[in-house]
């Protein structure tokens, strides 16, 4: 289900920005979960990261890239 052909340049641009930010957030959640001392906070960060991963996959899907494929290279 690729919507890439129907995306306007602006929509695409916003999606790429959002995807970058989502990925940054996933990375930060991972780093912070490693560093934090609080077990409850760790699980909170994992929850957030899982949520973000879901977002990133959704955005990639909208951009026309399959979540697991190598075509999403520039957004990783």
């Amino acid at each position: 289900m690729s919507h890439s052909t129907s995306l306007s340049p602006k929509e695409r641009s916003y999606m790429q920005d959002a995807l970058q930010m989502e990925n940054l957030c996933i990375a930060k959640c991972g780093v912070y979960a490693d560093q934090c001392s609080n077990q409850a906070m760790k699980s909170l960060l994992f929850d957030v990261a899982r949520n973000k991963r879901h977002h990133a996959n959704r955005l990639k899907q909208l951009l026309g890239n399959q979540p697991g494929s190598s075509t999403g290279r520039q957004y990783q």
């Binding site: 959002a18 930010m21 989502e22 940054l24 957030c25 930060k28 959640c29 912070y32 560093q35 934090c36 001392s37 609080n38 906070m41 960060l45 957030v48």
Partner: peptide, 15 residues
């Protein structure tokens, strides 16, 4: 820990 969450919250606001 607090600063980490502040940072994530700021990111959420931006997003």
């Amino acid at each position: 820990d607090r600063d980490m969450l502040m940072d994530l919250l700021a990111t959420e606001k931006y997003m």
